[in-house]
Design a protein around this nucleic acid. Sequence first.
DNA 1: ATAGGGTTAG
Length: 533
Amino acid sequence: MGFVFDVILQTGLLDYYGKVGDLTSAKRVFAEMPQRDVVANNAMISALGKHGFVEEAHNLFDGMPERNSCSWNSMITCYCRLGDIDSARLFFDRNPVKDVVSWNVMIDGYCKLGQLMNAEGLFVQMGSAKNCVTWNTMISGYVQYRDFRRAMYAFQQMQAQRVKPTEITMVSLLSACAHLGALDMGEWIHGYIRRNNFKIDVVLGNGLIDMYCKCGRVEAALDVFHGLPVKNIFCWNSIITGLGMHGYGKEAVDVFISMEKEGIKPDGVTFVGLLCGCGHSGLISIGRRYFSQMRGIYGVEPGIEHYGCMVDLLGRAGFLEEALELVRTMPMKPNSVVWGSLLRACQIHKDTKLSEHVTQQLLELDPHDGGNYVFLSNLYASLNRWDEVDMCRKLMIERGVRKTPGCSSIEVENIVHEFVVGDTSHPQFPQINAFLDRIAKELKVHGHEPDTASVLHDIEDEEKESAIRYHSERVAVAFGIMSTPPGKIIRVVKNLRTCSDCHSAMKLISKVTNIVFAVRLAYERLEASLENG
DNA sequence: ATAGGGTTAG
């Protein structure tokens, strides 16, 4: 009797050491055990696997007189953790006692490596054997690989199958909503969380804060933030970043100060949010001060992203020379983002000379980024330097560079519709097209002349005017006007920056129709908030 | 034994 008790006790100890990461002690306990049952062996396999000793785990596994599903699953987990998905699959296929965990681990292994097709294959094969972890794994896999619409769709199916979602499901979905700017869906999820008395912990709370911020509802984000009994650095960072993104730089600084008061140590992300917020609100000296205090007072080493924020902050404020000086003297090699910030500043302050220099730096740094060629080309076009415009086009063809296609999405009745430039596959495309034509005519009546200077936005297109008319955000906006009840804000998320022609056109549409648009850059700040023009 | 979060700038 005491013997069995000892085995259980020692296995417990072994498991504990494995979990806290003390492999040496785990090994010692294991070696000293007079008798090892399957549970003890499994605990050891799991501990070895966690530290990457998959060979040892494998040997132990091979020598086991008896194996259960847990033994097999531990081996699958070991190999997945190492990224050796083929070996994991071998164990999965040979496992005679596959259970739902075996499938879930395997699906997660594929998801983590971005092999979504393989993950989906198993997911489908499982049929009705899926549990809520299976669904959560697949949904989070879609979210991690930025296929947010599939994540939403999987959730609908999960509900149709009557599998109860959990807090974890909600976290993944909120992240999808944040990326898609799907406010209605995000609000619905918040409601669902409340109706089902889900516990809003730091992770779920942060999901809500981030979703509300990214969808432009900073007040709602603040409500969630203040309602959280426990906040961690993620929550603080999300709210500081969110406030700063939407022009509440002063408030972002205030939150930062209360964060300090509560004894939470800021990290690199906090400073990105804070400095960016200062930049967007023109808080130059405050931004400068925090940047200079980062290392000495807060113990956070400034990284390239912080220099990037400072270049942006100085450049926006018109201190172009100082910004350039910072780029030249920063301790690391400036990347395309840093040069890009400077370029944006040149554009705002109409410094074409510096603009040209910066764009050439960008072209050197990122010869395969089509956006750089387009920008330089547009710059030359605006200066009527057509030879150079031509040169840009030739260079692009020569180097085989293609422009990233514009893509806009809009949420209507909890469904996210996506429009890629030139893609006519949307079921309502003919109606949208006709509507766009009417808008175009209307725009002409109101004196809107298509701005052909920025036509090279679509460098590969022959028909200039129609190319502009079909930019994805316009299609999305048109669809939004057609299918949204009056009085509702039309929110569009786009992957590329809106061209000046679309921007002015949308301003005019907004003025004429009295509809408010918010076109946002994917994953970024509000690009243009057009409140009735 | 399996599933969850925040990062800026063209």
